[in-house]
Design a protein around this nucleic acid. Structure first.
Lengths: 334, 334
DNA sequence: GTGAAAGCGCTAACAT
DNA sequence: ATGTTAGCGCTTTCAC
């Protein structure tokens, strides 16, 4: 059996409260006993039982993370950031990948409740009222990551999607492109879909290129879909010289399609992505893209959640982080 | 406060033991009371406290997963498989990304112990004696994934790296290539490094192409390293017409390097990868590769761990899964 | 079939 | 400064 506090107490010849004290308030116990206890702990390889502690503290020192797609590099970066913050703040992390499945998401929330996670980071997905109800029903504090809520007062952290998209398209325009398409997220399930589209529209109309507003196709998060969307886009609008993709995956899918059609990127068509995934600089051609501070987003989300948990509220409710244009090889002057 | 079993009992007008019974052995309580209890549970949104349960069962119904690099798509696939198996088997999953940091790995093991995970899947890293000692010291059962141990009797599951590498190189040879290089994993920290090198050597010598045996450079898991390794490889051996990369990331890094040098793939040089990551079919050119059953590997690992946990042993200790050659665009006849 | 009570490992309030 | 004890929420004997 694993050693318990009682075993340690016995071996050190003290009471269990003394053992407990050396763990939680070492300065309140005399050095001689403290050392004996420490010695016993060492010897027995004793580690307190998180169940027993949790029962008392009513805290698990564990944070939950809900992501829609673990195979998307974007979330890998989020995880790394959040994990580092968790280590710093003394939390464990429970990562749940919903695969964009509603039932699974709901069931993970149950798990979180049962395991008594202290708080949840809800990433990227749209916070449907049903999710919201459940979350508040569970009374687990949560923050939104790469998402936000207009209806409810929920702490969130993300990039300014509208401005970021605007910057991307503006860049294309400044390169001299006038026939610009876009491959976006469908608006129904995505929080960043609409603002990125808005940014596209603003940039394009502002420059008198409003005819591009309808040159938009939607894809479903993965490059295979983007490949298909690119096919539709170029079938409907063969004259495009540039396309704004709302995700690097989409950019890769689009370029892949173009390549299969023997269209040169950036020779004939410029493509700009979004995210700046690790793969963006490995792809051929290397992707011009709008970088999100992915790692920092994850890190900040954990910090923000911690703030919410420890103070009961949050200094800035809807927080934005900076994006940045990164010019590589997939774009060129018209 | 969250509802407890006592609240449910009170509302249903029964004792707490009855409530407990409807949850764990419903057939032992009469229908009328059972319904009242169920009703109360519903109404209070009651969910048992995992801490209290854990204290009694001495089980957390949670599995731990240790991976070296969450930003490697390989592990994303592993996670998906393992997660699905966990759902089927009734476990939660605690994923810890070590970033190949020894201290971090050790500290995660402590966390696992404290949180009383029932078992651990240790993925891909070499099981150093120090890790082994710690794991057995913690008395937490574990299985090795994409790894194995020769010294210890530890359940493991992986692909046959030697044969897989052999098949890859053999394919290159059958394509007519005679000047073949390799970009491998350094042998010190990797379990699959040596056998994949052995497979390369066997294929090459068997066909009288033993002079290639020294045409090998090593890289450190990421494509940036492979890019550099490719540079060294082609600097030392400019006549190469094919290269075997022990990871798709390496293949991408190699192709990226070649592209920067205006060397055509597969026109001038054929490249074969290993893993068949999701990105392999998105890259340009699409990667010819040795596919690992990544998802199934993760799934099987969880099943195997479950087997170990529930029966105390495992039917086949060192298990192998099938790999498969997938021919796409990065290879061509010489 | 059902309830009372002990106890899982720990912390904290209370005694000493 | 240290020990004794109640109790966190649950399961599981043991009576009835």
């Amino acid at each position: 059996m694993k050693a318990t506090i009682r075993d340690v107490a016995r071996l050190a010849g003290v009471s269990i409260s003394t053992v407990s004290r050396v763990m939680n308030a070492p300065e309140t116990v005399v050095a001689s006993k403290r050392d004996r206890v420490l010695e016993a702990i060492q010897q027995l390889q004793y580690q307190p039982n998180a169940f027993a502690r949790g029962l008392i503290y009513k805290k698990s020192f564990t944070l939950g993370l809900l992501i829609p797609d673990i195979e998307n590099l974007y979330f890998a970066g989020i995880i790394r950031g959040m994990q580092d913050a968790c280590i710093k703040l003394g939390y464990s992390l429970m990562i749940c990948n919903t695969d964009r499945d509603k039932e699974r998401l709901l069931s993970y929330m149950d798990t979180f409740r049962e395991k008594q996670v202290d708080g949840i980071v809800f990433a990227s997905d749209k916070l449907h009222p049903e999710y919201y109800e459940k979350l508040v029903g569970c009374r687990i504090p949560f923050v939104l990551l790469s998402s936000h809520s207009d209806e409810y007062e929920i702490p969130s952290i993300e990039v300014d999607d509208e401005v970021a998209a605007y910057d991307a398209v503006k860049f294309l325009i400044e390169l001299g492109h006038r026939e610009i398409g876009m491959i976006g997220f469908g608006h129904s399930d995505s929080m960043s879909g609409p603002p990125r589209y808005d940014g596209f529209v603003r940039a394009v109309t502002e420059s008198g290129l409003g005819h591009n507003v309808i040159r938009v196709k939607y894809a479903n998060h993965r490059f295979e879909d983007a490949y298909q969307a690119a096919h539709e886009l170029f079938t409907d609008h063969p004259g495009l010289t540039a396309v704004f993709c709302v995700a690097d995956e989409f950019a890769m899918g689009t370029i892949s399609y173009l390549k299969d059609r023997n269209v040169l990127v950036p020779g004939q068509v410029s493509v700009i992505g979004f995210d700046n995934l690790r793969m963006a600089s490995m792809f051929i051609p290397k992707l011009t893209t709008i970088a999100q501070p992915i790692y920092q987003l994850g890190y900040r989300a954990a910090e923000k959640l911690h703030e919410l948990l420890s103070t009961g509220s949050v200094e800035v409710l809807r927080e934005k982080m900076q994006h940045k244009l990164i010019v590589r090889e997939s774009s060129r002057e018209k």
